[in-house]
Amino acid sequence: MLGRIDWMTPDDHPDLLAAPVRAATRDAAERVRVAAIDPDLADTAAFCERYGVPLAASANCVVLAAGRGGAVTYAACVVLATRRADVNGTIRRHLGARKISFAPMDEATGATGMEYGGITPFGLPEGWPLLVDEAVADTPHVVVGSGLRRSKLLVPGSLVGELPGARVMPLTR
């Protein structure tokens, strides 16, 4: 597996996944692993350093608020921890937004049913666009959130690109 961490099957540890994530990973359980972590180390850099996971095998999922004509819609994007998403260029244009920003924490957690610092592309609200950087989809195994700060998921990068609403494309500059 990856890093100095005990990866387990989600079926044996459903308590380590937020409710929407449990439902979203059910059909792909054989391709998904989960591990308990120290919740104080949920942030990517701290997690990677403590558990020996390369930054290039860790992906961040962020919730974006895209505005146009007074209406706000939400979307999520996933990029490797070693890359920066082009939020104000590529992503804003793809979403057809006039203005785009990171969604406020209370809106992101309320809309997803996930904890801040644990938001993952698995189990996002139906109908949300999910933009996946092509480098994530090309990574053999990637670590993402579990919906909770106290655990992480290990999944094939290609699985992230297969999620409902996912669009794999270059998202970084």
Rank of each mutant, 00 (worst) to 15 (best):
Cys61Glu: 01
Leu130Ile: 04
Arg22Lys: 13
Glu30Thr: 11
Asp40Gln: 15
Ala29His: 04
Gly123Asp: 05
Ala71Met: 14
Ala42Gln: 15
Arg150Ala: 15
Tyr74Glu: 09
Met8Asn: 15
Pro140Val: 10
Glu126Asn: 08
Asn60Ile: 06
Ile37Phe: 07
Arg83Gly: 02
Arg26Thr: 14
Cys61Trp: 07
Pro121Lys: 10
Leu131Pro: 04
Asn60Tyr: 01
Ser151Phe: 07
Pro10Arg: 08
Arg68Thr: 15
Thr82Gln: 01
Val168Ala: 01
Ala66Glu: 05
Val32Thr: 04
Pro14Gly: 11
Leu95Ala: 03
His141Ala: 14
Gly117His: 06
Gly110Lys: 02
Trp7His: 13
Val32Arg: 00
Val34Met: 03
Arg84Thr: 13
Ala135Arg: 14
Met8Glu: 14
Ala65Thr: 04
Val32Ala: 03
Pro10Gly: 13
Phe102His: 11
Met8Tyr: 02
Ala42Phe: 15
Leu163Ser: 02
Ile100Phe: 03
Tyr51Ile: 01
Ala18Met: 07
Lys99Ile: 00
Phe47Ile: 12
Asp133Pro: 06
Arg22Glu: 03
Pro156Leu: 05
Arg84Ser: 11
Gly69Leu: 12
Ser158Asp: 14
Pro10Asp: 10
Glu30Ala: 15
Arg83Pro: 02
Ser58Trp: 11
Ala59Thr: 09
Val143Tyr: 14
Pro104Asn: 08
Lys99His: 04
Thr44Trp: 04
Thr73Asn: 13
Leu159Gly: 12
Arg22Tyr: 02
Asp106Leu: 14
Ala19Thr: 07
Val168Met: 02
Thr120Lys: 10
Asp38Ile: 06
Ala66Lys: 04
